[in-house]
Amino acid sequence: MRHILGLGASLAAFWMLLSGSISLDNKLVLGFGIASVVLTLFLAIRMDRLDGFPVHIRLSPKLIQYWIWLAKEIGKANIDVAKIVLSPNMKISPRMVRVKASQQTDVGIATFANSITLTPGTVSVDIDDDEILVHAITEDMATGLIESDMDERVTAMELKYR
């Protein structure tokens, strides 16, 4: 219930932000806003009941810290892949590797797989229970991912949500 009320409040704030004006003169637009918030809440409640495991994500300092680290990694990987693309002979050596995912929850595994995909040079192709199949554009990228501590970082962050 608290979750639904919070969602309603943030949806209303979001609508005000997008519509730009909060004047009460235009009853029609205000009515549309309220109707869309109520409809979305109804859909959210229905989805939670069908799905059975609602996911709640809170912003925490650890999450921000992880994003900053991830942004750095993305920048580095981008430059590496850009170099490959722009070099005349394109030295690629594609690999498929399986990477261990030690996360316990679905959110954790999704975060890890998305982080892998966000870093250019590695794309998560398939997810088993505790392993992610990754396509890497060069052998260096594949070994770099296996040796990096991305998995531990995501797991450490995930523990906060359990």
Partner: peptide, 22 residues
């Protein structure tokens, strides 16, 4: 450019990743 130059679908994904992120 990578999407045009690279040899197959999986490697082109990586090139598209440059556009989408940085």
């Amino acid at each position: 450019l990578g999407m045009l130059r690279l040899p197959d679908f999986y490697t082109r994904l990586h090139a598209a990743g440059i556009t989408d992120t940085l």
